[in-house]
Design a protein around this nucleic acid. Structure first.
Length: 286
DNA sequence: CGGTACGCCTGAAGGC
DNA sequence: TGCCTTCAGGCGTACC
């Protein structure tokens, strides 16, 4: 499912095909994927794409007239570019398309939004002020999250550390896969109460979050089922997972069988040996 | 405050 | 072989 590395992979791969192009026609096949005005103009028809911006799992397409379209891929969403004359491998669940032309008005292909489960969506915003407002609820991008941000979020929180990592208000971009991978990297039990983490552990966790995300980007993200990048290719990171999807298998570090449970409402996998540090179940009776 | 359940949605995978 | 159930999950929201 698309988390930060997958969205960043999409941003990088559609960028050369989209930025500088004009949207000759915006086609909406399913109006209910749009939040906000759903007119062709609101979907950037007639505008030229000035740039792409990403925060966490959100991708913003910013037009030269100031209008903004935010794409969220949910868990099965795809945003990819089709060359002129290209055809869709699977035309089902395509909800929106943007027909692009170059500076001379020549066909420059089509940008396609496809999302079988429809957990994703499109947000139409009138200007960048609205974009900043829309993004105000998100924490800093997890790719370069400062340890101080995580430290402050953990300081007084009784939540499980994994819930903190998944909280987009704290830091933007971490989902279930990379939360587990980061906890494993930092040797921290995902159920540890955030406020029990020592400063050095928070530092390590922040570093692992950045590392696991950037390494995933280098492999163009993770594909479990649906994800493809902006040029329709699957991600290559899956083989690199240490814990996600590996419950019952051997820990890559110590060989012990990986455990699985629900933490923060999500399937969670960890190594009971490498990530052993758990808070006491009962308060010390003293 | 935080945990839990639910709803949204489809398709893969497992059970019988 | 085929139907039925279960599960997966981002995210908002209601509830305890």
């Amino acid at each position: 499912m698309p988390e930060l590395p997958e969205v960043e992979s999409v941003r990088r791969t559609i960028q050369p095909h989209v930025v500088g192009r004009r949207i000759r026609q915006a086609l909406l096949d399913r109006a209910d994927v749009v939040v906000g005005e759903a007119s062709p103009a609101a979907l950037l028809q007639g505008a030229r794409v000035a740039r792409l911006e990403r925060l966490g799992k959100h991708l913003a397409i910013i037009a030269d007239d100031g209008r903004v379209l935010v794409v969220h891929l949910g868990m099965s969403g795809q945003l990819f570019w089709l060359a002129p004359g290209g055809s869709l491998a699977n035309p089902s669940h395509v909800h929106a398309r943007w027909r692009l032309v170059d500076g001379r008005g020549v066909d420059a292909g089509t940008l396609v939004f496809r999302d079988p489960r429809r957990f994703g969506g499109l947000w139409t915003l009138p200007d960048e002020v609205a974009l900043r407002e829309h993004w105000k609820a998100l924490g800093p991008d997890a790719l370069d999250v400062p340890a101080a941000v995580l430290r402050q979020a953990c300081a007084k929180s009784a939540r499980a550390i994994k819930s903190v990592l998944l909280d987009q208000h704290v830091l933007a971009g971490v989902g279930n896969i990379y939360a587990d991978e980061a906890c494993f990297g930092a040797r921290i039990h995902p159920r540890r109460r955030a406020r029990t983490l020592k400063p050095a552990e928070v530092e390590a966790l922040a570093r692992c979050v950045r590392e696991v995300l950037s390494r995933a980007i280098e492999h163009r993200g993770t594909t479990l089922r649906d994800f493809v990048d902006g040029e329709g290719r699957a991600g290559g990171y899956r083989l690199q997972h240490a814990v996600y999807g590996r419950a019952g298998q051997a820990c890559v570090r110590c060989g012990v069988t990986l455990k699985s449970a629900i933490v923060g409402g999500r399937t969670t996998v960890w190594c009971p040996t490498c990530q052993a540090s758990r808070p006491p179940k009962h308060r010390a009776s003293r």
